[in-house]
Design a binder for these strands. Structure first.
Lengths: 189, 189
DNA sequence: TGGATTTTGTACTGATAGGTAAACTCTTAA
DNA sequence: TTAAGAGTTTACCTATCAGTACAAAATCCA
């Protein structure tokens, strides 16, 4: 009965989804086992550190995705305005118009926040920094660019909260559209 | 050993704080017992429906506070712009510049969301509606006012998420300040 | 084929979860 | 004075929690 899963990486998305839907504490091992199709023996074989190691691995994979798909383009693109627009569209897809929760944001509000505080802070700090860099040229001061970046990241997180609470994905889309319209290169920016 | 607490209302704030800090599932009866100073027996005397009834009571009390302190002023004030500004300041204090979580928003992201879906949706729908009403006179269309209102409510929720994740209350204050600056009656609004 | 290794199922642990039940203590008022 | 009710303590229930132990199985390498 060996070799159901070849790579540990294969089950990370499933793991992430369980944590997203149920939170860290709410995601019991039996739920995780059910969602991944792996028994306890296998789970502890791949993650000897238990749930904490599972969450750490999930956070690392999320971090990697954002680093390559969002942060790096913002930091290095020759056309910052285009990179920012691409960010909004990538985020809209990633969070399924607010029907999919931001696991890092959720974790930051939750009971187990302290356990993963560094990873959570890092994720948001790097996001704000990348966006600040992309915005720097269109703002008079670094602080103005940073303010704008904080606004946008907060707006995205808040759009998830609001859209989910209302059960209205269109709210997420509208909030993002309006923020996009306030970016450099757009009228009224 | 009777009569430790006179009014059920007296323990609601303590209850609310436990739920805010630990979430619905994370707030165990022993934590609740410790935070309120009431034994299990007493808790079930006041809330025969258990945790669910406790949370329902907390949500009702939160709802009542927002209704009288935020929504009604927005809906009935003769000076909507002043009411909006007052809202931002009341919210800043209430959420302690993002150091205090919005229990309703948190619940909307959590596992037990379905259990309280109606109360959660109601809270945010009424907030958006009240703000839309206050903004209506300064926008060309009802939809424009609603868009603006959604932006603001989402911005507040996102500011909580971001400020908490970063451990930086000043981020909450900056995000709110910028939103306040974009309200009617302000330059650039 | 055969031995070493990786993977998995099952049964278990102690702790804690939410909730129940009943005995007990105090206050109140007739 | 006493009986009723409000409030409380304590002990207990079953279910489930995260985590452990370990042997049976599947696979790999030779």
């Amino acid at each position: 009965m060996a070799r159901t899963v070849t790579e540990k990486a294969d089950i990370l998305p499933l793991l992430a989804e369980v944590f997203r839907e149920h939170g860290y504490e709410g995601a019991s091992l039996s739920l995780i086992s059910q969602a991944t199709g792996l028994g306890k023996g296998s789970l502890y074989h791949f993650f000897p550190g238990g749930k904490e190691e599972m969450m750490t691995a999930v956070l690392a994979s999320i971090d990697h995705w954002f680093e390559t798909e969002i942060f790096q383009p913002l930091l290095t693109s020759a056309h910052p305005a285009a990179a920012i627009e691409a960010m909004f569209e990538a985020v809209r897809t990633y969070f399924a118009s607010g029907q999919r929760v931001c696991l890092v944001g959720l974790l930051g509000l939750s009971d187990s926040r302290d356990q993963f505080a560094e990873a959570i802070r890092d994720y948001f700090a790097r996001w704000v920094q990348a966006l600040t860099t992309a915005l720097r040229h269109t703002h008079q001061t670094e602080q103005a660019a940073r303010d704008h970046a904080e606004q946008s990241v907060a707006g995205i997180q808040g759009a998830i909260v609001l859209a989910r609470a209302l059960g209205r994905p269109d709210v997420f889309d509208r909030v993002l559209d309006e923020m996009k319209g306030r970016q450099p290169g757009k009228s009224g920016g």
